[in-house]
C-alpha cells in the first residue's frame, strides 16, 4: 500500500470554495472526469449537515501495457460521499473506486476547512491510500508506484484546474452582484 498526502491553501473564503466545488467539472485540466452524478442527497435534520452521494465516471489514460495486463478498457466508477457542515465550515469528501478493485483500490479523503488564522482563505487536505489488488499482487510495488505517481500528477492538475474554476466563479459572482446592484438602482 502507498499513502499519499497533500496540503494546499486556496486564497478564497470557504463558502466560495465549497460552492465552486460542486461546479469543479468539467474543467480542461481534468478531461479524465467524464461524468458526475448525484445519487442521493439530504440535509440531516438534527445537525443541518448536507450529505451527498455521487458517482463519478472516470476515463483515464493508462499505458497500453497495463491495459493488456488487465484485458479491459479503463472506465472507472468512483463512489463519493461528502458532508458539508456550514456551521463549522468544513467540507469532507470520501471516495473509493467501485470497479477494477481486484486490480487496484484508491481510497481518497479530502477536506476543505476555513483557514484557522486567515478566515478569507481555505485549507485543503487530500489523502489517499493506494493498494494493488489480488490480480496484480505479483506486480504490486510496480503498480502502486506507477499509480502513486499518476495520483500525484492528477492531484497537481486537479489543483490547477480548480484554481481556474475558482477564478471563473469569482468573476461570475461579481458580474451577477453588479447586475443585481444595477437592477436595484434603476
Amino acid at each position: 500500500m502507498k499513502l499519499f498526502k497533500s496540503v494546499h491553501t486556496y486564497d478564497y473564503p470557504w463558502s466560495l470554495v465549497s460552492a465552486a466545488n460542486w461546479q469543479k467539472y468539467p474543467n480542461e485540466h481534468c478531461s479524465h472526469v467524464y461524468a458526475v452524478d448525484v445519487l442521493d442527497r439530504r440535509v440531516e435534520p438534527d445537525t443541518g449537515v448536507l450529505i451527498t452521494e455521487r458517482l463519478i465516471t472516470v476515463k483515464q489514460n493508462v499505458p497500453t501495457i497495463i491495459l493488456k495486463l488487465m484485458g479491459t478498457g479503463y472506465t472507472q466508477y468512483v463512489r463519493e460521499i461528502s458532508r458539508i457542515d456550514p456551521k463549522s465550515k468544513t467540507l469532507t469528501m470520501d471516495s473509493i473506486n467501485l470497479t477494477l478493485s481486484s486490480y487496484m483500490s484508491v481510497a481518497e479523503s479530502i477536506e476543505y476547512t476555513e483557514h484557522p488564522s486567515e478566515p478569507g482563505k481555505t485549507q485543503f487536505t487530500q489523502q489517499a491510500a493506494i493498494s494493488a489488488g489480488t490480480k496484480l499482487a505479483r506486480w504490486a510495488s510496480l503498480v502502486e508506484d506507477f499509480s502513486a505517481k499518476r495520483f500525484q500528477q492528477n492531484a497537481d492538475i486537479g489543483r490547477e484546474g480548480f484554481n481556474q474554476v475558482l477564478q471563473r466563479f469569482v468573476v461570475r459572482a461579481e458580474a451577477s452582484a453588479a447586475n443585481q446592484a444595477s437592477a436595484a438602482s434603476s
Binding site: 445537525t47 449537515v49 450529505i51 460521499i81 458532508r83
Partner: peptide
C-alpha cells in the same frame, strides 16, 4: 458503507 452514513448523530 451505507448512505446516509451512520457515523453522524442521526
Amino acid at each position: 458503507s451505507p448512505f446516509p452514513p451512520p457515523s453522524s448523530s442521526s
